[in-house]
Amino acid sequence: MSKMIATRDAYGEALVELGAENGNVVVLDADLSGSTKTSGFAKNFPERFFNMGIAEANMIGTAAGLAAAGKVPFASTFAIFAVGRAWEQVRQSVAYPKANVKIVATHSGVTVGEDGGSHQSVEDIAIMRAVPNMTVIVPADGVETKLAIRAAAAYNGPVYVRLGRNKVPTLFDEQHDFAIGKGYQLRDGSDLTYVTTGLMTAQAVAAAELLAAQGVSARVVHIATIKPLDEELIIAAARETGAIVTAEEHSIVGGLGGAVSELLCERCPVPVKRVGVQDRFGTSGKAEELVKYFGLTAENLVEAAKEVLAKK
């Protein structure tokens, strides 16, 4: 088994590294620094860390002001609050002026677990993707998270990075050539393609193994940057394999599945099946129970593949 690390932990490490390298990096949190892992930066660089209290709207606006004065702010809280509570601040104060603000949200999706539906953001990719000027990144593992955080810091403009609470398997090694806007083919295949993001990419790799044992050849394409989308990689996969299964720990409405469907409808129509949360809210439970409950396992992906293959 590969090393297990939560993407939020990788974020915390990346911030401490960045803080040492770049004196303009500042970090804001809304009373969740222990959970979002910005606490490491706070400990190392207390003068550049701003706890804004439980006031997310002001945190995002303050980050925009820091950016306007030349800083590189990272603002963190849970995804539901960063995107939900502060959405119009993200739109008006960050995206509209193209402010150099990095919104790094943790505890996204249903794997938040026991806290339940109030805390499980299943809409944030859709919401952030709809905002002009916004870049949306959903890393698959700890290695990619660190690279994504570095890429976000190097990029001049608004970035939303969606991270998770729980430990996930490591898919990439340090040589991973992460770049904003680039997708990655992790496995070749000819019968269908899994186009996946975040922690679902590991499930797709497992599903492809299961399918191989049944004589089905599945390609796996990991989409870390949902916006801007690596359109050519996805169109090539649709053209060459003729069927697509998308998967995300997010609603099937408006997220990766939505983005891929919009693209393929216009440029390369093939059968598509979207795996994700079926337009409903989350609920309390253990993370491993919830991925089963919401149909986000490798076995679910195998079923989805068979469904889409029947339509080819």
Binding site: F50, N58, I60, G61, T62, A63, A64, G65, L66, A68
Partner: peptide, 9 residues
């Protein structure tokens, strides 16, 4: 809020 951010910076 943006003014606060600028003042902090």
């Amino acid at each position: 809020s943006m003014a606060v951010g600028m003042a902090l910076a």
